[in-house]
Design a binder for these strands. Structure first.
Lengths: 154, 154
DNA sequence: TATTGTTATACTCTATAACTATA
DNA sequence: TATAGTTATAGAGTATAACAATA
């Protein structure tokens, strides 16, 4: 699997597969570091990002994050303890709850967002303009290709 | 942070940054799934891959994986319990141990390797030959760029 | 004294199974 | 009965701090 992103050394021209793998570790490391600087995990940031523009229940949230609902219970518990989200009663359905981001949650996820855009933007500076465009197109093609082969959730 | 890789919908042309992020989630999901099919986590596979061609101690292993040594103690404990690695005494240094992969460990990491190469190879089929070449070059450039900015470990 | 490795402890993330309270 | 959500439990992964043994 070619270990991780770092592991410097001479760099003997990566295969596309190894490049994909190392790049994924690199990006995840950046995300984890920048989220961590705000006291969050990648999972917490994902959750906050999902909730930024939706007001949904635990089950739906679990579906989007591709986690079990019991996992999401804990996730929301911890975020709620930190004042990042709230569980709201749903009028007319006493067994449902809707999770919403608080202002504090919005603020912190915004900080992470900006830091990520900045740092990955700098990284993209390694490519010239044409390189950036073709890379962006290729990335989109790979993602679409994957998404069409593996059923997309919601 | 643009949540995760899935989350299909119309696909409104990703920015380079969002593409990088989604692609990293996608690749990690593939790695996690294929490792999981062999009963391993990504971390365990990384460790086995590191040990495949090196005989090193706990401290060095921690450095390469960028983990605390105490974390590696647990990692090696669990892998050893499953018969994937062994702690070997180091002749002439009674406080050091060298971790080595067993045949079982080698076999299972090989299975994961092959599955990953196959699946990511298929994914790369979304690009034509020229696209693959330029994508491979760009990926290499991004990784080198990152590695030169952030001190490389060992 | 410095270094290698482990232990103790704690927290996050995740899952499965069983349960409660609605619908 | 079926569904939304929680609780109980367990295990992996991670970190910090303290410790043991050896160099």
């Amino acid at each position: 699997m070619t270990a991780s992103a770092p592991e410097g050394a001479p760099a003997p021209e990566l295969s596309l597969t190894d490049g994909l793998i190392q790049l994924s570790f690199l990006v995840q490391a950046v995300l984890g570091r920048l989220a961590g600087e705000q006291g969050l995990s990648i999972t917490q940031v994902r959750m906050l990002a999902v909730l930024e523009d939706r007001e949904i229940g635990m089950r739906r949230l679990a579906g989007i994050l591709e986690l079990e609902k019991s996992s999401v219970t804990g996730l929301v518990d911890r975020a709620e303890r930190r004042g990042l989200v709230r569980r709201n009663a749903v009028p007319g359905n006493r067994r449902a709850v809707h999770v919403t981001v608080t202002e504090a949650g919005r603020a912190v996820v915004h900080l992470v967002h900006e830091a990520v855009r900045t740092e990955l933007g700098e990284l993209a500076g390694a490519l010239d303009e044409g390189g950036q465009n073709s890379f962006r197109r290729s990335t989109g093609a790979l993602i679409r290709h994957y998404v069409t082969r593996h059923a997309i959730p919601l």
